[in-house]
């Protein structure tokens, strides 16, 4: 068997990703006027927690059915986003876009939950959550799907690494000044009732959009989506006043950190899929 300490190390790495994603969500200050929540951070947080629980039973949190619902919703959410990306940019959105990898990550997790649940032996049937350690080692039904997902995950991870080292992704949070209205008209950004934008801050007031995360995925797109985004220029990271945040916060909120988390999760997921085939 794959040694338990190795699974613990990968689980620890996933907890670190979860902590980083949580820190990003907090740093984005969604409770403040104009705060930002990023759907991928919510997805990373949930997936990392689920993966840690799968790798190390004592970190298990929700039952399979709960994770199944969560990942099903994430799959639906990112499927919509990928479809929109493809409509806008064509098939290159699958390689250059941000949502396609997250769609694959979510689908892989959903597959793992469903395939493992279906294959659960009577000995493990009473356990909460997925578990791939010890005697109750997880095996996956439809292993060809596992192989397919693992190949795609590895492909995206390698691509992300190349793009990250090619400095496609910034290591600091950049300011996004005055975006022309038509340019962001197709944004799926939503405001939270009570936020600065929903109160109708003037177009000259730099603020940030509140973006629906996983919770939004539950409800799916709602009427009026993007409406607030059409009104206002935004800054990144929830910083008010139109100035980019600096220092650690800037780094924490940088695209590179998200992509780094995505790489770690992609490799860890491929690892999990292969050891469970």
């Amino acid at each position: 068997m794959t040694p338990a300490w190795l699974l613990d190390i990968v689980a620890a790495a996933m907890l670190a990703v979860a902590a980083l994603s949580a820190a990003r969500l907090v740093a984005a200050r969604p409770w403040r006027r104009g705060g930002v929540i990023i759907d991928t951070d919510v997805a990373h947080l949930l997936m990392a927690i689920a993966m840690a629980g799968t790798l190390t039973p004592r970190l298990s949190t929700l039952p399979d059915s709960g994770w199944g619902v969560i990942f099903g919703l994430l799959v639906a959410w990112f499927a919509v986003r990928v479809t929109r990306d493809i409509r806008r940019s064509g098939l290159r959105a699958l390689a250059g876009g941000h949502c396609a990898p997250h769609f694959v990550h979510s689908a892989s997790m959903l597959y793992m939950v469903l395939a493992m649940t279906a294959a659960a032996s009577p000995a493990t049937a009473g356990m909460d959550g997925m578990d791939m350690s010890g005697a109750s080692a997880m095996t996956l039904r439809y292993p060809t799907l596992a192989l397919l997902f693992a190949f795609i995950l590895v492909g995206y991870s390698i691509w992300d690494l190349d793009q990250l080292s090619g400095r496609r992704y910034a290591f600091g949070a950049a300011r996004v000044p005055g975006i022309p209205l038509p340019a962001i008209a197709d944004s799926a950004a939503l405001t939270v009732p009570g936020s600065a934008m929903s109160r109708g801050s003037g177009p000259t007031t730099p603020t940030t959009g509140y973006v629906r995360g996983a919770a939004g995925a539950v409800a799916g797109p709602v009427p009026g989506e993007g409406a607030m985004g059409e009104r206002l220029p935004r800054t990144w990271g929830g910083h008010r006043g139109g100035h980019p945040p600096g220092g650690n916060r800037a780094f924490l909120l940088s695209p590179a950190v998200t992509v780094g988390c995505r790489i770690a999760m992609g490799v860890a997921m491929a690892f999990m899929l292969f050891i469970a085939i």
């Binding site: 990023i38 986003r81 806008r88 996004v176 340019a183 944004s187 950004a189 959009g209 973006v211 990144w236």
Partner: peptide, 14 residues
């Protein structure tokens, strides 16, 4: 990071 947070043009700029 999803372009949800920024809008496509913003993301392009960033």
């Amino acid at each position: 990071m999803s372009d949800l947070a920024l809008g496509r043009a913003a993301l392009q700029g960033q």
